[in-house]
Design a protein around this nucleic acid. Sequence first.
DNA 1: ACAAAAGTGTTGACATTACACCCATGC
DNA 2: GCATGGGTGTAATGTCAACACTTTTGT
Lengths: 228, 228
Amino acid sequence: MSENQFFQSAISVNCVVFGFDGKELKLLLIERELEPYKGDWSLPGGLVYPREDLQAAASKVLHSITGMDSIYRAQLKAFAATDRHPFGRVITVAYLCLLRHVEADLTESTFAKTTQWFNVNRRPDLVFDHEKIVSAAVTRLRENIRSRPIAFELLNEKFTLPELQLLYEKVLGKSLDKRNFRRKISYMDFLQDTQEVQKQKMYRPAKLYRFNTELYQEAKQEGYVFSL
Amino acid sequence: MSENQFFQSAISVNCVVFGFDGKELKLLLIERELEPYKGDWSLPGGLVYPREDLQAAASKVLHSITGMDSIYRAQLKAFAATDRHPFGRVITVAYLCLLRHVEADLTESTFAKTTQWFNVNRRPDLVFDHEKIVSAAVTRLRENIRSRPIAFELLNEKFTLPELQLLYEKVLGKSLDKRNFRRKISYMDFLQDTQEVQKQKMYRPAKLYRFNTELYQEAKQEGYVFSL
DNA sequence: ACAAAAGTGTTGACATTACACCCATGC
DNA sequence: GCATGGGTGTAATGTCAACACTTTTGT
């Protein structure tokens, strides 16, 4: 076997981390502390050790910049253009990650000079092929948010329907009819009214709802298909 | 930089090649001529050279076993479990490939002892993690065939509606109502009646249709969304 | 009482399902 | 003329889109 010529590539993971601050869809970026492109903005990520699992590597990256564990992540796609990394052949596997914006502690960051949330649509230029990766992630998020209950990963455990609707509007890039939106929600038994209301602002407080994972799983077993 | 510890992995591509013989959904498998697992059944694939593009590598694999070029392929997913390959860390990027069953010339195969079509549901056990890859591909095909005009990649340029419907039934695993299916088809202006009929069998011949890519692209530009 | 956003129903258009018979051909 | 699968329409139901006013709270 002459496999040595093949075993010369590196594997990395990159995390496209979305958040929602109640107003805009956000993207978590880091200012690189290491070469190449030191000082430029990039997706959080890192090289994967030869014996390291990809999911574990992604978790490590996410923990190191947010201090959080068990963050939602789904494999997005592999990016492998031969010229994407100046140091050699580096194939990267991108993950689409969703987290509760407020729970992230960005001061934790170890491998980034700074870590910062940006509006998805007003982000700095990114290094490598990270623009492509972000575009693919935004597209995937847009496709999946309608057919899977992933929006709840971006909201607090208790959330209001106006929050949920605004999140959908920001992701889909269009406004939705309030009454139609809420009618669909009302059919979803796994979205439960908590009998609580949002802390007062200067107008009518909104009811707080909760996504009940167990009830959703049951419904799914029985053939229910999420759709919004 | 101590990047050498990272640049020790290999990249491979694997192709999940679907076909349709007019009766069943088929999967193209090879009997391995090389170690590891020589003699066992596996997905066609191969290691990628450090300077080789993934798409090109997939095309090379596909050409070498079918003699065909420009076969439909879409990246499915990366599979990267640390223990998936006995020779070391090999990350594989799987492609979902669709081709016209009759056009493949399996005698072309260069790197396989034999190349053979199997019913998707009656396939031999596969090596590595190829079972997982096939499962993911079947799921993806099932999801995508309803929202993208990819079924036509599996049919002859001219095809009949009973053929198309049977293909959908085999992929989705359920029978469809003929009249409802054909009504939806009739709205699709990019599916054109060729004014020809299928070569006679011993009963009424079916009309031949053609998928007009240009018309489909135009409709898509104008906001049309494929759905079946 | 005012400002601000939360919450609530109905109607018409369209899409989906269910369902049964005649048609064209080769033998 | 018979066997075989190809081809066709309608009615009932369900889903989706459009649309405006009342309610609740803090100040």
